[in-house]
Design a protein around this nucleic acid. Structure first.
Lengths: 343, 343
DNA sequence: AAAAATAATGCAATCGGTTGCACTGTAAAT
DNA sequence: ATTTACAGTGCAACCGATTGCATTATTTTT
């Protein structure tokens, strides 16, 4: 059986002897259509299985009903949670999503921004790649008054709305906790300090040391990637420190898990010899031994909030430029990997 | 500065004194345009910053240049790898992606299929929810001759092309390995047997037992969800078996990690008391103690291949209906969690 | 009862790219 | 030298929904 053509508003109009304009108006909730007519139209639309042709509609309306999402990496527990949150809100509000990832590459990020712009997304949600050094590539969005919301990795002083956590406080809390457990030589494994998330955590780490009269030693800070191979290498660098640290604050749970594995293989006892604090509260933190103390980072909520921000801006309910930065609650979750003392 | 309107082919046409049709033809690689004209047009297009309006183009061409992707869950390491593979190929070939997830819910899956159909995607890549019982909701795609490729979770005998691994063999290999390690009472923790991936692995498990003269005992098979809470519960059920099993084949690495955690907390030694084999070769399998023996499942490649299948079908290079099923290589990766004997 | 306001609908242009058909001019074939 | 072919280009009709403006019918106001 040959496939029939799709049903259009013209088909409905012809069948009912009304004009396409009336059908169009009836299918939305414009009140400029008589009640009887509207009912007939809606009934016929359902009966014929009418579906809006979004291309025609978008073309005419000059908007896409689509949000662009740019992430620095797809294969990450945290990012997946955020995406899931965004998707949840987008689905509810009938927005579509185009997802692009930069693989931590500024060049690809620029290409993606460009691409999404030309795909005419109505708004953008983004987390920056590790080597992005400015926001020039988002300028076209700003010029066109398209809302942009950054999450997690942002430029705190630059354009766009932001949804973040207090990374300074998180870093401070993690370090303070290690100090309270009796650690005196605390190392810090982190990633590109160009990114606020890492530089702020470092700042918190330093502040906690200072507040406790511990001298900062830059050899104790290891900056590298967070993927498996980098993590293993960082762990080896830890093992070469002399004297060995008695605590490590690591800005990523997966990285912490790999580091712990290497340390354990080297005969180091955790937490007795070295206490560990991770970051993110990924599922992995509960299935490694010892269980990982970490900072709970509400990714799903972050996604939902970023999406809601954008969408309520688009619907005119609120203006994204007035509430510029939203800080979500994050907190230290204490598990075995850092418990030297039973308090 | 007020934003200028977007550049259209009409702007280019006017500027050069040619017709829009010629511009349109020049911008694609139709050979029906003179060489000099084409060059001028391309130069002007670049200079003015012209970008195709995809809505207009899609509307006219009646296709979207977009692939729909339906997954049963977003927050999964395996799925993320697949998505990453799909994205990689889609980006190369200039296809967009719309990603929808069913949260393991057949009803939502049906809604998603419907939605993607009406968004007029050019093709569909899908993995089934755990309680999906038929493929009726994909019929509209078939009727419209839109290609559908299923991956991972498929109906092996039903419509559509499939990209899968040999789950029977994987199950057989995992079980055979445990038997070779001296296990005699092997439990199996798995999920919905309506899904080929789980039923086939179970079949492999049974076949290996049979081939080694071990009687199948259905109390040794635990069917439940694979998320954290279900996994913990399954572990408790294992602990209630009497006699205790001396080996477990678990169809998911994360689930295996949780189970191991619970077993270890209960004082069971792995692999001495109980050997464990997981499934997927997620990153997690290498950072838990002991490291997890598992089946390597090439998610990224699976995504790439599914996407390539669809796209080459769409481009007319190959017909998806002729190569109906593609089976990817998977293999047992032996680590500490199952090594009872140093062989 | 006449005038004014309002509700319900239609007309037709518009969004921007694509493509079948027709036309022109030059090159190739006879 | 004539016919034939074809490369290069333009015309105009689409694709389907939206919306400002005009028109008609109906209700309200005075």
């Amino acid at each position: 059986m040959a496939r029939d053509k799709d049903i259009t508003i013209y088909d409905i109009a012809t069948q009912l002897g009304v004009s396409p304009s009336t059908v169009s108006r009836a299918l939305k909730n414009t009140n400029a259509v008589g009640n009887a007519t509207r009912k007939k139209i809606l009934a016929t639309a359902r009966e014929l299985g009418y579906q809006t042709n979004t291309f025609a509609s978008n073309l005419r309306k000059q908007r896409s009903n689509t949000l662009g999402v740019m992430v620095h990496e797809l294969r990450s527990n945290f990012i997946t949670s955020v995406l899931s949150g965004i998707e949840n809100v987008a689905a509810e509000t009938n927005y579509d999503l185009i997802i692009a990832h930069s693989s931590e590459n500024a060049k690809k990020e620029r290409a993606n921004a460009n691409n999404l712009f030309h795909k005419r997304v109505d708004g953008l949600i983004a987390s920056l790649a590790s080597d992005t050094s400015n926001l020039h590539h988002f300028k076209s969005f700003v010029d066109k008054s398209l809302p942009v919301v950054f999450f997690d990795r942002v430029f705190e002083q630059d354009l766009g709305a932001k949804v973040i956590i207090n990374n300074f406080k998180a870093g401070y809390d993690a370090t303070q906790h290690l100090i309270r457990q009796g650690c005196e030589r605390i190392a810090h494994i982190t990633s590109s300090l160009n990114r606020n998330v890492y530089s702020e955590r470092l700042r918190g780490y330093k502040a906690a040391l200072a507040d406790n009269g511990i001298a900062f030693d830059e050899r104790m800070v290891i900056v590298d990637g967070l993927a498996e191979e980098h993590a293993a290498y960082s762990a080896k660098r830890i093992l070469k420190l002399s004297p060995l640290p008695d605590g490590i604050f690591i800005t990523n749970d997966f990285c912490a898990a790999v580091v712990m594995q290497v340390l354990k293989d080297a005969g180091i006892h955790i937490p007795e010899d070295m206490a560990i604090v991770g970051f993110n509260n990924d599922a992995i933190s509960k299935v490694i031994s010892p269980k990982l103390t970490t900072i709970d980072y509400p990714g799903y909520e972050m996604g939902q909030i970023a999406a809601r921000q954008i969408i309520s801006h688009l619907k005119g309910t609120s203006n994204i430029n007035t509430t510029n930065t939203i800080i979500l609650h994050s907190e230290l979750i204490i598990r075995e990997s850092s418990l030297k003392q039973i308090s």
